[in-house]
């Protein structure tokens, strides 16, 4: 048994972190003391100092500014691909659960097929086939991240479908669309909200990973992943180069996980299963 206010602390810490990180991303042009693209060959690989709180990279660019601008990319990828995943997953899960039968079988097998590919491998493959670009990364992560949501929504709908209030709505002559929109949607909202929150960190993690592997968003656009890639050769001499971008990946992903976990506990839901 979990106490009534279980998850409150997690949620509050998580959501505060998300707000701070979003503010940093939105206000990046105001907060950054330097242009993230401005190179300064004389001051390359400067350790953290007053002028450059996170130090400078191999081209003398200010890492603090680049981390702030990187937050924009990460959060944009995270949010947009989450929206895409949730939309696709919701529609497919709803259709499968509500109509059942052959359609259900088809959708679920399709879901299984997408699900057996490790997401990082799948995204890496698809990004490699096409030209790496920001919109493509969002599109691919969003387009492969939906199976969890689809299964979840289907499960919820299957449970709700047999409930009396759905039966009575149908008896009163409500059409399929109306039942889905006014009766099923609000009731499945809680679990979907948790799944949506948890799919943001998955997307952020995948984007950073793909960019770190060199196939995601390409330099000079600063992202935390490609900054880490750039730092790989300078680990011995410049710890700050790799440390700060990675720290921000961790903080962002951790913040969303905390929020999702807090929400899950507060809504009294059982654990939502995710894929790696």
């Amino acid at each position: 048994m979990e106490a009534k206010n279980a998850g409150n602390t997690e949620f509050l810490i998580g959501i505060s972190l998300i707000i701070i990180l979003s503010a940093l991303a939105l206000l990046a042009p105001l907060l950054a003391a330097h242009d993230p693209y401005e190179t300064d060959a004389q001051n390359w690989l400067q350790p953290p100092c007053k002028e450059h709180p996170f130090g400078t990279d191999r081209l003398g660019r200010d890492i603090f500014s680049r981390v702030l601008y990187g937050a924009r990319v990460s959060l944009a990828v995270g949010t947009l691909s989450m929206l895409m995943s949730v939309a696709i997953g919701f529609l497919l899960g709803m259709a499968a659960g509500y109509f059942g039968g052959v359609l259900d079988g088809l959708i679920m097998r399709f879901t299984d097929i997408v699900l057996v590919f490790p997401s990082m491998l799948l995204v890496l493959t698809l990004v490699a086939i096409f030209e790496p670009a920001l919109w493509l990364v969002i599109f691919v992560i969003g387009g492969t991240g939906w199976p969890g949501v689809a299964r979840l929504v289907r499960g919820e709908v299957l449970q709700l479908r047999t409930k009396e209030f759905i039966q009575s709505a149908r008896m009163l002559g409500a059409n399929h669309f109306r039942i889905m929109l006014y009766h099923l949607l609000p009731n499945a909202l809680g679990p979907v909200l948790v799944a949506a929150t948890l799919s943001v960190p998955a997307a952020v993690m995948t984007e950073a990973g793909v960019s770190y592997f060199g196939l995601g968003i390409q330099p000079p656009i600063p992202t935390w992943g490609n900054m880490l890639r750039g730092a790989q050769l300078y680990l011995r001499h410049a710890w700050w180069y790799a440390f700060f971008p990675g720290l921000f990946i961790f903080l962002t992903v951790f913040a969303f996980h905390l929020t999702g976990e807090g929400l899950r506990k507060q809504l009294g839901l059982t654990r939502v299963r995710r894929r790696g």
């Binding site: 997690e10 960190p201 993690m205 950073a208 990973g209 770190y212 880490l228 730092a231 790989q232 680990l235 011995r236 710890w239 790799a242 440390f243 971008p245 990675g246 720290l247 990946i249 961790f250 992903v253 951790f254 996980h257 905390l258 976990e261």
Partner: peptide, 18 residues
């Protein structure tokens, strides 16, 4: 358990290497 799944493996690797 929440922190562990939030740490990017390659970054942890880099920190360990350093």
């Amino acid at each position: 358990s929440l922190a562990g799944i939030s740490v990017p493996g390659y970054w942890l690797g880099i920190v360990l290497i350093i």
